[in-house]
Nucleic acid binder design. Structure first.
Lengths: 190, 190
DNA sequence: ACCTGAACACCGTTCAAGT
DNA sequence: ACCTGAACACCGTTCAAGT
């Protein structure tokens, strides 16, 4: 009589996917491994998620929402600081997120099928504090362009770092700080 | 009597993989589709390549070699130009490569398994002209750090562009040029 | 309304057998 | 020395049947 009670949920499935991703990479995110982790059989996942690609997109969106919180918090703490200092704090907060969730971070701006773009809302939320600092540095007219520059650098750097692409030795922290400082100075002067 | 003549080769397999990648994304690069494109059955590929992950790594290495040629050529043409101008030319050449081969470019600094790092040689070759401009901008002591900053920005920007991540409208070319100019100015001033 | 077992097409990979 | 057909374990996905 009573219809089957839900044993899992979309948030639980997304969380399972993200933890499997960080533990073993994309190949480890299987409908079977995700199902096992949430205590269900693989076909049941399709009641919560259209297919595997949609699950990956939902994981990326979840990461974007988490990042939005992290960035908003960092911006709030330095609300009255000069823009270069707030930019440094934002970049550091992003990098902290990328180190805690490197594989999720590498997914943030990836493309999982043409129909699977993450919704604009979480991305916009994460972008808000970045656009705000950018506006202070270059003015409102070019704030979007400057925010894209800042995001591209931070995303590129942290993705390369996570992939182990910095293999010629040297101090990686120093390089990150040099980049943030150069962008703060160079954008303000542009 | 006569042992079977080779019907394909590693370069042909890598080229087939790259064209399939650009046409249909990573999911389209299948041992079966690659084999069909080079005119062989799937098991034969394993005489030329250890497994699919190694094929993907070889495709990335091939892209890095192509990029090295493109960058060396751009640097050669502007050998006597001021560093900011040569940097602009290098960034433009990289972006041109990324637009011709967006999915290969997105792979350049990705990680396909811990044992599958691309060999250092092609990466170093591609990095050479970037490190050279970086040295002119910030001095030899910080040239590696500055080259990492430049690469991170360019890789991040072109990856986001290829993934369709710039979705708030605005002029994407302008943003790229703003970033290159800001880095040239900001690094020189640092 | 959600869960499951059974089934399907497909994929990566191995291997013995061909030339 | 490289190629092939057959076989295997696994994966994503569908669907009819359960509660």
């Amino acid at each position: 009589m009573s219809p089957a009670r839900a044993l899992t949920s979309l948030p639980a499935i997304v969380a399972a996917g993200r933890s499997l991703l960080e533990e073993g990479g994309l190949d480890a995110v299987t409908m079977a491994t995700v199902a096992a982790r949430v205590g269900v059989k693989p076909p049941s996942l399709y009641k919560h998620v259209r297919d595997r690609a949609a699950l990956l997109a939902a994981m990326a969106t979840d990461g974007a929402q988490e990042l939005a919180v992290v960035l908003a918090e960092a911006a709030r703490k330095r609300a009255d600081a000069p823009p270069a200092e707030r930019l440094t704090a934002l970049a550091g907060a992003y990098r902290g997120f990328a180190r805690r969730s490197p594989r999720t971070a590498a997914m943030l701006f990836a493309n999982y099928g043409p129909e699977l773009q993450a919704p604009l809302e979480p991305a916009g939320l994460a972008a808000k504090p970045v656009i705000d600092v950018a506006a202070e540095l270059v003015g409102a007219a070019r704030s979007l362009a400057a925010a894209r520059v800042l995001t591209a650098f931070t995303y590129g750097f942290t993705s390369m770092e996570a992939a182990g692409a910095f293999r010629f030795g040297g101090d990686v922290d120093e390089a990150f700080q040099l980049g943030v400082a150069a962008l703060a100075r160079g954008l303000a002067a542009a």
